[in-house]
Design a protein around this nucleic acid. Sequence first.
DNA 1: GTTTTTGCAAAGCTTTTGCAATCCG
DNA 2: CGGATTGCAAAAGCTTTGCAAAAAC
Lengths: 152, 152
Amino acid sequence: MNDLASRPGERGSLAGRTTRQRSAVRRVLDGCADFVSAQALYERLITTDLPVGLATVYRTLRELERTGRVDVIRDKSGERRYRRRPDDGHRHYLICRACGRSRPVESQVVEEWAERAGELSGYAAVEHIVELTGICTRCRPDTSERPDGEDV
Amino acid sequence: MNDLASRPGERGSLAGRTTRQRSAVRRVLDGCADFVSAQALYERLITTDLPVGLATVYRTLRELERTGRVDVIRDKSGERRYRRRPDDGHRHYLICRACGRSRPVESQVVEEWAERAGELSGYAAVEHIVELTGICTRCRPDTSERPDGEDV
DNA sequence: GTTTTTGCAAAGCTTTTGCAATCCG
DNA sequence: CGGATTGCAAAAGCTTTGCAAAAAC
């Protein structure tokens, strides 16, 4: 379905110069509650903020990804989607396949599992990708009454 | 980096007719120890088995994916790679970023975690994607002596 | 005044699709 | 035979790249 990268460390240095375009990309990205594709972000930018070039959006997002300030997933069709990484370290999400809304989930267990698997196997520099998808309560008006609370 | 789909159930019916091409695709795919891309599989096919069309390879792989007989990952560049799914139900792998070799890993913990997260959140039909990558011992002739054993 | 960035358009890639010819059952 | 399948080539997308013009510092 898709994937979510979770790289260790690597909170590298920022990009080079501060330009209006880059600021705009970050600003609009920050304004997005959920994962957005580069193309969608581009649309938002030129319609609600600053008319930037699509290539610039891609370049900026790649840089943000490289420096670990966004989480990235890939949807079914292979399109990448970006979301500003929360400062508190959340890195795994449960994403609604119907509406696309995402929410961070408790992932302590998985982190540990991944680490252990790496140790047992003797592999070095083990990284993991984890993503959950489902149908949220709002998109499933039928059964169940459980509220769509926050973090699991 | 990439991703690995793990769908519940859905061991659906086979494709329609049995053709030489489809048999060849499966045959060559079975002969691949690790994940291969459609393009790579196509190369192998026309050079060592049967000259099939690239489109046919894609169509066959999509069908195999749909019926749950292959596991799929996406590499960094977004290219899909396929691997015959073991009959014993293994579904998560630890893949070497250097040589591409993959090995199934024990994933009981993650399966349970995913299920629990789904329940707690109230999301329905929760599916998960999990993949581990690292550098295997063979690709790291330096330190460590731990053997590259089988399943973790 | 340099050096980095931007933007546009063109190119790259993998994957999908249209359609006539071909094959399977 | 008759419908499913193949192959080829063209089409689709998303993302990257080349390069001259523009912006930063």
